[in-house]
């Protein structure tokens, strides 16, 4: 598995509360090999048989679908983005506003329930900031030409978001996640 694929797999496994693949062990800090792993796995990661790719992809897909199902159930997210009324020029802002209020409330509830978020940079947007030496380019995206060595001076355009904790629901087996929202039939009396 390439490092890129492994990183993605790890990301989603952590996000959905599953164990990391054994290959991830080689990226653990030195001196603290996890006790449950046999030594040889750490020494010879290449010889470890690769887990079938399809199950990895499946897992990541199921989690994403479950999150969409949650946003749809609580906040009607799919209904909203797929609503042809949003593209219809005759729809009034008041009608959109009324729908958005309810969609926002539901989606916010999901986000607050399962994720805790914080800005990557605490400063106000549009403030003058300094990007320190040794910064992580995946945390801070530089726009324009970086001249010379850090620290770099600039203006904070977007403070970024970082998930501090993700406690997404555990998913039971045997449930078709492709159905994001079931059809609803109200029975006649």
């Amino acid at each position: 598995m390439s490092r890129f694929v492994l990183a993605w797999v790890c990301f989603f496994r952590i996000l959905f509360g599953k164990k990391l693949p054994t290959e991830a062990a080689r990226f653990l800090p030195e001196g603290e090999p996890p006790k449950q792993l046999p030594e040889k796995v750490i020494e010879k990661p290449v010889e470890k048989p690769q887990p079938p790719k399809v199950s990895v992809a499946q897992h990541h897909k199921e989690g994403a679908l479950a999150l969409l199902a949650l946003l749809q159930r609580e906040g009607r997210f799919i209904d909203f983005v797929r609503d042809p009324g949003m593209l219809d020029a005759s729809t009034t802002d008041a009608d959109i506003g009324a729908a958005v209020r309810a969609v926002h409330r539901g989606c916010l509830k999901v986000i607050e329930q399962y994720l805790s978020l914080e800005p990557v940079m605490p400063q106000d947007e549009e403030a003058k900031v300094s990007v320190p030496k040794g910064f992580d380019p995946s945390e801070i995206r530089l726009i324009g030409e970086a001249k010379g060595e850090a620290p770099f001076k600039g203006t904070l355009r977007h403070k970024g978001w970082r998930v501090v904790e993700a406690k997404l629901p555990t998913l039971a087996e045997g449930v078709d996640r492709m159905v994001i929202a079931p059809a609803e039939v109200e029975l006649s009396a």
């Binding site: 909203f80 609503d83 219809d88 729908a99 209020r101």
Partner: peptide, 9 residues
């Protein structure tokens, strides 16, 4: 109740 939201609230 339907999938169409805008205008139905």
């Amino acid at each position: 109740r339907g999938s169409k939201l805008v205008g139905g609230a």
